[in-house]
Design a protein around this nucleic acid. Structure first.
Length: 947
RNA sequence: GCGGAUAUGGCGUAAUUGGUAGCCGCGCCAGACUUAGGAUCUGGUGACGAAAGUCGUGGGGGUUCGAGUCCCCCUAUCCGCACCA
């Protein structure tokens, strides 16, 4: 029989489905292996060849692990909530559930064509009530917990309440908002219920607060920081502005340290870990309180300590700054507040009031985009007020400028113009003093007036710095912090760039919050009320009064109290999906303890790098929280993570002569003025345009004329993103139809290293198709009848097979599948040349290739007489004895340049090899009578003769 | 600006980790079978050269008997972060 992939693939797809071949059991004596793909958002466009790249790679690994005797969990599902379905609903009025369902079905059809060994019985969809019940449930737990800094763990909020009742909050060491007030036990007891709730909100891990959010008017919703790039939304590219809104947030910052430390325990690429480290942005330094100077015009204010001691710091007007370089405090010549800083109004002098207000208004109204675009432009205004530098006891002016960010540290900085480029630029622009306090090694102090930029101060010794003069930077940092602590105005502090995750979206297509409002403060539903179903509404727009779409829902209330109008963000559902796969049908709990303790965490996670700061951070946080609750037994959810590269498109172009409907072939185009026009790659073969199809392609090309070269129209090409608009999309369905799924699988792997981006070459796949045909023919005679003999194979055949087993085995462990495919090609070429058709070779070869090309291998496996699926057959083991060589080809080089090759027995001594090489005619020719200065013989490798 | 990665034929890539650069495939060239080929099979294919040979892994230095691989400097491209105090 000819290799009929269509029939074979159809047959085995049906077989696997009918036999539930890839069903994973939660109890097994086998070791477990959990291999997960980042589940897709089912878009309306369907899959192109780039999407399955990771799925195929993980599938090969899953199939390999099964053959190695592991109980493999390899599930798939859908990240089904999200903006595109809702945007489409707004445009068409169609319910997003309907379009989502349709897209999922299409995805499933396409995925099924690829022979992926998923356990579909475990499928999850984030928009399914039986799934989002647990997303809502986790939200409720977050609401009911706070983070205990001492235990480094989430604890029930009730424990916090007991502490408040006993001692107030002075002794409490918990993650909370900056503005959390201090209170005693008595005060707590006298608070009203509403006041108590407001206090607790400062501690909850899911909390409602007025926060500065990224408001995207075009999408009608707020966005999390990772959903905004360069001041515009990641989805759609709409402008984003800062706005103060009451929103749910998740206190992910409480976990910053654990999120950072956990990175040391996982096998991710360094670049990905680095992205997360940057995003978390830990910096060590000091928090320092600068007192506001009293109404004194003196430049030097001795006795700061006495001034501070007059009252507790909080009574003296003062503001807090964060610095990583407390050692430069003697170089502080002014202070800068961000325009949003709440003390501005309080400290600004009457004379400066108008100017400051104008600046603040201007700065606040600028979009993020404008602000970021004009980073180099210096702007600011003097408040008229002064602070006291507590160490120099001098009076320093307080300015307002938008180069200080509200979102980082305290929104206020001590400016050290000599050693900070931004402070330097500001000082120069407004003519403020610059004072050098760090002297790099080997330099002499210079007049700061002559400087054109700030001086690096990473290392060196302190100068002009009072008691730390002469100290190296590192020592000075400690010394200054000690002094500040002593004075009662500072402390060591670690600061993070990471912000809490804004968790509300003013959208319809997402999980409703299990929250109602009683007397104006939020309460969570009882767990028994879950899931809180997403209600039906008439239209998916905000209301006339600007309320989110859920405000349109009828009876959207609980026991007469209004329910929350927001829904959760797109990333909510994906946070814990990997846990739910372990026990997807459990309606009593998120997942059972047994299932979790068996599957533990994901051993191999495959997906795109685009989730580096979103999903991968939130999901780790979510899991750590569930770990604190004693539910998820392993703290890091994804042990090994591989980011697959993108498959780029190879676009084809025709060149239209300007102002005409005439097209000139690639190599002649420079003789004309032309415009390149994208042309559908389906009407181009090997860069040759099918002229007739081009004329039919679109009405405007119907009358096209051509200037040909050698009778052909040659198209130009360029590597671009694979996208419909560039007409360079390859549809996997078409390839499966034309070449087969096994060919597609192997070709995707053959393109290059998994983690690299590489273009899709429409021609290259034919080489893989030819290879599979050749592979098939190994098992067949010239009449194409199945013909495998039981004769003893030759040594050469054994060697060829075992070379391949060794290499492929090593490659799979490294996921270096591109070299595996080429190894198969080499092996099949060799066996074909050897006319090998022996069972002892072809049976293991079939198993070796089964993870890559499962359909054809199942078919051959059956022809070989096996009755069980090859999916659980034993992966072949290589035996060293077939690979032993008794001679080696030594490359003989002169001064490092290879000249010829000589073969010697492996056990030949260096001396003998040297003698024989030098005696050979080839060597004599190159020596030309000279005596070699030195001869290097590396056994089993090379001979190098130095002359 | 900071951090990370990458750079090898016309193209995608490979190189036992310091030891014969270019495996495998595409493309290209030639041949076979064919009425025909955009099918199939066989052989060739880094550049220059008639050949002997010379040159050759982004560029420049270095270490070494020997460097695509190690070290230093530079260039280009991609990615992440970016007024982060």
């Amino acid at each position: 029989m000819e290799y009929n992939f269509n029939e074979i693939e159809k047959k085995w797809r049906a077989y696997w489905a009918a036999h539930k071949t890839f069903k994973a059991e939660n109890r097994s004596d086998k070791p477990k292996f959990y291999i997960l793909d980042m589940f897709p958002y089912p878009s309306g466009a369907g899959l192109h060849v780039g999407h399955p790249l990771g799925y195929i790679a993980s599938d090969i690994f899953a199939r390999y692990k099964r053959m190695k005797g592991f109980n493999v969990l390899h599930p798939m599902g859908y990240d089904a909530y999200g903006l595109p379905a809702e945007q489409y609903a707004i445009q068409t009025g169609q319910h997003p559930a309907i379009t989502t369902e349709r897209n999922i079905n299409r995805y499933r059809e396409q995925l099924d064509l690829l022979g992926l060994s998923f356990d579909w019985d475990r499928e999850v969809r984030t928009c399914d009530p039986s799934y989002y019940k647990w997303t809502q449930w986790t939200f409720i737990q977050l609401f009911k917990h706070y983070y205990d800094e001492k235990l480094q763990k989430a604890r029930p909020i009730a424990e916090l309440v007991s502490q408040f009742e006993a001692d107030g909050n002075a002794q409490v060491n918990a993650s909370c908002d900056e503005k959390t007030p201090d209170f005693s036990a008595d005060e707590w007891k006298n608070f009203s219920e509403k006041e108590k709730q407001e206090i607790l909100m400062h501690y909850r891990l899911a909390y409602l607060s007025d926060s500065m959010v990224n408001w995207c008017a075009d999408l009608g919703t707020v966005l999390a920081n990772d959903e905004v790039i360069n001041g515009v939304s990641v989805r759609g590219g709409y402008p984003v502005e800062r706005k103060l809104m009451k929103q749910w947030s998740l206190r992910i910052t409480a976990y910053a340290e654990r999120l950072l430390r956990g990175l040391d325990q996982v096998e991710w690429t360094d670049s990905l870990k680095e992205i997360q480290r940057n995003w978390i942005g830990r910096s060590e330094g000091a928090s320092v309180w600068f007192p506001i100077a009293e109404k004194s015009n003196a430049d030097v204010l001795p006795g700061v300590q006495a001034y501070i001691n007059q009252a507790s710091l909080h009574a003296v007007p003062a503001f807090e700054i964060f610095t990583t370089r407390p050692d430069t405090i003697f170089g502080v010549t002014f202070m800068v507040l961000c325009p949003e800083h709440e003390m501005i109004a309080q400290i600004t002098t009457p004379e400066q009031k108008a100017e400051v207000e104008a600046y603040v208004t201007w700065a606040k109204n600028r979009s993020e985009r404008e602000r970021q675009a004009e980073v180099k432009k210096v702007s600011g205004v003097f408040t008229g007020a002064y602070a006291v530098n507590p160490l120099t006891e001098t009076r320093i002016p307080i300015w307002v400028s938008d180069y200080v960010l509200a979102g980082y540290g305290t929104g206020a900085v001590m400016a050290v113009p000599a050693h900070d480029s931004r402070d330097f630029a500001f000082a120069r622009h407004f003519n403020l003093p610059i004072r050098q306090v760090v002297l790099p090694e080997g330099e002499q102090p210079t007049d700061t007036d002559t400087w054109t930029e700030s001086k690096d101060s990473k290392s060196g010794v302190c100068i002009n710095s009072g008691f730390i003069d002469g100290m190296p930077v590192k020592k000075a940092i400690t010394a200054v912090i000690d002094r500040l602590v002593e004075m009662g105005i500072g402390e060591r502090k670690v600061n993070y760039r990471l912000r809490d995750a804004i968790f509300s979206r003013q959208r319809y297509w997402g999980e409703p919050f299990p929250v109602y409002y009683k007397d104006g403060y939020p309460c969570v539903l009882d767990e028994s009320e879950l899931p809180l179903l997403l209600p039906e509404i008439d239209t998916y727009q905000p209301t006339a009064t600007g309320e989110p779409p859920l405000a349109r829902a009828k009876n959207w209330e609980y026991k007469g109290y209004p329910l929350d109008y927001n829904t959760m963000p797109g990333f909510a559902g994906s946070n814990g999906y990997y846990l739910r796969y372990m026990d997807p049908h459990n309606d009593q709990c998120y997942f059972s303890k047994e299932a979790n303790e068996y599957w533990r965490n994901v051993d191999l996670y495959v997906g795109g790098i685009e989730h580096a700061t979103g999903h991968l951070l939130y999901s780790r946080f979510w899991n750590k929280f569930l770990h604190d609750l004693g539910m998820s037994c392993v703290e890091e959810p994804y042990h090994k993570l591989v980011n697959q590269g993108m498959i780029q498109g190879r676009s084809s172009f025709v060149y239209r002569i300007k102002g005409s409907n005439k097209y000139v072939s690639l190599h002649l185009k420079d003789e004309y003025e032309t415009d390149p026009i994208h042309v559908d790659i389906n009407i181009v073969d090997n860069d040759v345009l099918d002229i007739e199809k081009f004329r039919q392609w679109r009405p405007e090309f119907a009358g096209a004329e051509f200037i040909l070269e050698e009778g052909k129209y040659i198209c130009g090409w360029e590597i671009e993103k694979m996208s419909k608009s560039m007409f360079n999309v390859q549809n996997p369905d078409d390839i499966v139809e034309k070449q087969g799924a096994d060919t597609l699988r192997m070709y995707e792997m053959f393109l290059g290293p998994l983690e690299q981006s590489k273009p899709w070459d429409t021609k290259g796949i034919e080489g893989v198709a030819r290879f599979l045909k050749k592979f098939w023919r190994l098992y067949h005679n010239s009449e194409l009848q199945f013909a495998v003999s039981d004769e003893k194979p030759s040594d050469a055949a054994y060697k060829s097979l075992h070379k391949a087993i060794k290499k492929v085995g090593e490659d799979i462990e490294k996921m270096a599948y591109n070299t595996s495919v080429s190894t198969f090609m080499i092996c099949v070429n060799e066996l074909t040349d050897l006319k090998c058709n022996q069972r002892e070779i072809l049976d293991p070869l079939c198993r070796l290739m089964a993870p890559f090309a499962p359909h054809i291998c199942e078919e051959l496996w059956q022809l070989l007489g096996h009755t069980e699926s090859i999916a659980y057959a034993e992966f072949p083991q290589y035996e060293e004895k077939y690979l032993v060589e008794n001679s080696c080809n030594y490359a003989v080089s002169f001064n490092g340049k290879t000249r010829f090759v000589m073969s010697f027995p492996l056990d030949m001594s260096r001396e003998e090899i040297e003698k024989e090489v030098l005696a050979s005619a080839d060597a004599q020719k190159w020596l030309q009578g000279q005596t070699p200065k030195k001869v290097i013989v590396v056994p089993k490798k090379i001979v190098n003769i130095v002359i």
